[in-house]
Every structure is written in structure tokens, then in C-alpha cells.
Design a protein around this nucleic acid. Structure first.
Lengths: 174, 174
DNA sequence: ACCTGAACACCGTTCAAGT
DNA sequence: ACCTGAACACCGTTCAAGT
């Protein structure tokens, strides 16, 4: 006797993202997700292998949301940097998870495409990959430090971000 | 009737660091630490408040080990970068934990001192803090990407590191 | 004063039994 | 076919009882 489905992978992942932002990774339990989608915890295992797979799916969804924002920002390094920062501040836990969990590399690769285009326009094809890595590493490290409250020695964080962007641009076009 | 102490905070933290590198954060359980120091899990609570406090203590010890290495590397940005990279590759889990757990900010502040000295020598006192943040953000992001295996689009990782270092130097002295 | 076994709460996961 | 209660393993943590 078939039973109608009471939830779906998409709903589970969406619930996972909301719970993650609201309570942090420790609060993202199978029970919390199950309750939010209106089902008992064991039922989740019909749709996802285990909690690690859920974390990976949530990370993938975050990366895809970021990729959309980057694609919309255009091919300018400054615009990409600000889009990246806007995403990190809007979804701090999702941002962190992208570099923590078993985040699927292919999704991360796709999000790198606009960066590599912008870098290529700036420094040429040969150095585009290295330049994109320089830029991405800086932005990622900066945002992680910003989110973790590491900027405590005074100074303006916005100003430090603009400073980094300016010097990076100078270094890449030198 | 007094009982001789069978372990110590230092021994517990040292055990925590070893277990962390061997098994990752999920394997760093109170039971694993207790077994390694030759005690039962409940006894650990005589010395540390809870598992979060243990993680913080392990993170602090990692940061202090890093600070020693940076202090020994001198006041040259390139030497600091390579010392930082050497530490991250020698203690990948400890490196990750430094930016994950409730890593005590004051310990992180101390590790920043040599960076700020080097930056100050390069760009002057006024921009030293912003320059140190630019450099630290890049290095931290780069190493996290390297450790997580994010560099998969080809290219030589060592070359990308040297490229970043060179361009950063160029941007800061421009 | 420190250590321990026993106990409790909580979580991930499996599975037989329901519809 | 999907859902569930019950059960199990495992972990963090507390506490009364030992020495």
C-alpha cells in the first residue's frame, strides 16, 4: 500500500539551511530537521544517507546560492569581492560550512568561474588561475576573520577590506 | 584521604593535540583523551570545565606553538609566510581548529605581533595594521584551501603560493 | 583531594512492523 | 512505498560513593 510522501530532499535541505543559520552546526541535528519538515527522524534516512550527507547537501546549496550572486555581480574584481562579502554576512554559518564540511569540490569549482574570468581580464590568461587563487584566498580569509570576530586590534573593518582590495589590484596590475 | 594526581592539564592538552591530529575533531572525545592519559572520562572534569574548554585549550596550545615559529622566522614577510605554511602542513587539524573553535582572541593577537612588525617595516606605521590583515587573510585563506584540497583546477600549488607572495609584496610597496 | 561506576540526557542510525 | 516506535551504540556530563 503506497504512502504519500510527506517531505522531499529539497525541503529537508532548506530546513537544514535555516536551522544551521539559527542555531549553528551543533544545533543542526537530524531530529531538529525532522521536526521542522513534519516527520520523525528515521524517515529522513529514506532521502539522505546520513548526517554527513545532509551537511554536504546544505554546503552545496550554500555554494550554489553564492554562485548565483557572483554571476550576477559581473566580471569586476571589486564587485565580486563585495558580493562575496555580502553573502558571507547574510549567511555566516553557510559560508563557514562551505570550507568546513565535505563540501563538494565540483560545486566550489563552478563558483570559481566568474573569479577566473575577472582575473583573466586583469592579468591575462597565463596568470589567471594564480591571480584568482590569490584573490579568493584573501577574500575567504578576510571574511572568516571578520565573522569570527578576529579583528579586535582596532581599525575600521570596512576600511581594511577596501585597503586589501586596492593593494591586491595594485599588485596584480604592477 | 588525599589521592596522588594521576594526570595534569598539560598532559590532557598534549593528548588532545595528538588525538586531534590523528583522528580529526570528531575523534577528539573525552573518552579518547581519558584513555590516553590513563584515567576515566569523569576525572577529566576535575581539570577542565567541559569539551568546549578542552577544544579551546587545544586551540590555544596550537596558537602558541605557531607563535613560537613565527617569532623564530624573523621580520620578513616571505619568511613569515613560509613558517606559517610549514606549521599548517605539520599540524593541519590544529591549524583548522585555530579558526574554528572558541579560539581565545588574546592568543591570536599575540601571534599577530611579528606580522605587524613586518608590515610596519614595509608600509609604515599608519598602514601596518591593514597590511598585516591583508597578508594574514591571504595566507590563512590560501592554507585552508590547500589543506581542504580545493586546488584542483591544475597548476602548481607551490607556484601559486610564491605568486601570491610576490604580488602581495608588489601591491604593498606600490 | 582525587578517582570511579553508575546513571541520565541526547544524538545518530537501524530495523521490524505498520499503513 | 513510505512512515514510525523501539532499540542500540556512543558520547558528554553529573554525582554519590570509594580511597
Amino acid at each position: 500500500m503506497p504512502t504519500p510522501e510527506r517531505t522531499s530532499v529539497d525541503e529537508i535541505v532548506a530546513a537544514g539551511r535555516e536551522i544551521l543559520e539559527a542555531t549553528g552546526p551543533a544545533g543542526l541535528t537530524m531530529q531538529a530537521v525532522a521536526t521542522r519538515v513534519g516527520v520523525r527522524a528515521p524517515s529522513l534516512y529514506k532521502r539522505i544517507r546520513d548526517r554527513d550527507a545532509l551537511l554536504a547537501a546544505v554546503a552545496t546549496a550554500s555554494i550554489e546560492a553564492l554562485t548565483e550572486r557572483l554571476d550576477a555581480a559581473g566580471d569586476d574584481l571589486s564587485a565580486l569581492a563585495h558580493a562575496y562579502r555580502g553573502f558571507a554576512n547574510a549567511h555566516p554559518e553557510g559560508f563557514r560550512l562551505m570550507f568546513t564540511a565535505a563540501a563538494p569540490h565540483d560545486a566550489l569549482d563552478r563558483s570559481a568561474a566568474p573569479l577566473i574570468r575577472a582575473a583573466s581580464a586583469l592579468v591575462g590568461k597565463d596568470d589567471a588561475l594564480d591571480a584568482a587563487r590569490l584573490f579568493t584566498a584573501w577574500a575567504t580569509g578576510f571574511l572568516q576573520m571578520e565573522l569570527s570576530g578576529a579583528f579586535r586590534l582596532g581599525g575600521d573593518v570596512d576600511r581594511a577590506f577596501e585597503y586589501g582590495l586596492r593593494r591586491l589590484n595594485a599588485g596584480l596590475t604592477a
